[in-house]
Design a protein around this nucleic acid. Structure first.
Length: 346
DNA sequence: AACTCGGGGAT
DNA sequence: ATCCCAGAGTT
């Protein structure tokens, strides 16, 4: 009781003014929650503004093409969020007649909406007593109550969800949920939290037993694997190039890229020229090959480190599936490709 | 239960 | 380098 009251009081004085805190419209709250999954407020904020401006209603989002939605999402990462966002918008607009689901159980059925997001929307928009458990909540609860169950174990997720559900202010679930998350983000930070001015420090087990740095406990993830990406940047005399859609599963699904040649090791100029001479886009075609970046660009993702080289391929003409280089900005691309396009003078 | 999915920021 | 971020879906 004192725990939740303290958090809510702290929140009332210390919360940031954010656009999604000025509304209880489920469409906007949903949009903000999807954007903010595994994403810091600072990074997600401009994307939220862009989506609200471009798609003011769920019908506007439903009407869009996936390519445009992905383009607006470009750079934010975890692109399945954008694909699911669009799928769910169409579902709500056309099958639910625009009526947004208004309970935890119904929200949970939406693609891209899991336990956290269903709890957040249900509490914020509909005052349902469903506790959110995100990274902030894990941190605050594990420290205050001195719980060392790994947060990314199934035992841990159940344990923390149950604890949060017991602690939530039944009269004001919306404020409590947002308060504990904001508290975790601003005060009970991962590194060097300012415990000396913390309103909860007297009862905090981690603080009083000097275990702040050890909590929460998390099971280590596997190390990232190295991959070698070689992109073929075609340029024809009539200023066309080739972009291909990534259709398969894996990273960047439904985004576009220059034709990719993945290799088991870093390619030297001579070895790569020999290799691509038999490439299906290049056989029987005279071409001139130039290596754009001598040192591989290392693009780091959670599970992969992409050692990347861009190879400029000058040809006389290109096949029918080529595009004008001035149309290149219309396509959603991974930020790795986007950075190249920005730096390269087509 | 373990793995996959991005990109940026802090330390 | 390593960790974290208003997590969800698949295997």
């Amino acid at each position: 009781m004192i725990f939740s009251k303290t958090l809510i009081y702290w929140y009332s004085n210390s919360k940031r003014i954010l656009p999604w805190r000025q509304t209880k419209d489920s469409y906007y709250i949903w949009l903000s929650e999807i954007i903010l999954q595994q994403t810091q407020v600072k990074q997600g904020l401009p994307y939220y503004e862009a989506f609200v401006a471009t798609y003011p209603t769920v019908f506007d989002l439903a009407k869009a093409n996936e390519r445009d939605v992905l383009k607006l999402w470009q750079g934010l990462g975890y692109y399945s969020r954008a694909r699911n966002l669009h799928t769910t918008a169409k579902h709500i607009a056309y099958e639910l007649n625009g009526k947004f689901p208004n309970s935890y159980n119904e929200l949970l059925k939406l693609k891209g909406v899991g336990d956290y997001t269903a709890s957040a929307i249900a509490s914020i928009c509909f005052n349902e007593v469903t506790a959110v458990v995100d990274g902030n909540v894990y941190r605050v609860l594990s420290r205050f109550f001195g719980i060392d169950t790994p947060i990314n174990s199934s035992k841990g997720s159940k344990e923390f969800k149950q604890l949060a559900q017991e602690l939530i202010d039944k009269k004001n679930p919306a404020e409590f949920n947002q308060a504990i998350m904001e508290f975790g983000a601003m005060q009970c930070k991962p590194k060097q939290p300012d415990c000396n001015i913390c309103p909860l420090n007297k009862g905090c087990i981690a603080f009083n037993t000097n275990r702040i740095a050890e909590l929460p406990v998390k099971i280590k993830s596997v190390k990232a694997k190295k991959k070698h990406f070689n992109f073929l940047v075609f340029i024809s005399k009539d200023e066309k190039t080739i972009l291909e859609k990534r259709e398969n599963k894996g990273i960047w699904q439904n985004l576009y890229q220059f034709p990719l040649v993945e290799t088991s090791r870093e390619q030297t100029y001579n070895a790569f020229k020999k290799r691509v001479t038999s490439h299906h886009l290049l056989k029987d075609t005279p071409f001139e090959l130039t290596l754009y970046n001598k040192d591989a660009i290392i693009h780091k993702l959670s599970h992969q480190h992409l050692y990347t080289k861009f190879w400029i391929v000058n040809t006389d003409a290109l096949s029918a599936n080529s595009i004008s280089v001035d149309k290149i900005q219309d396509f959603p691309v991974p930020i790795l490709i986007g950075n190249f396009i920005e730096n390269f003078n087509f």
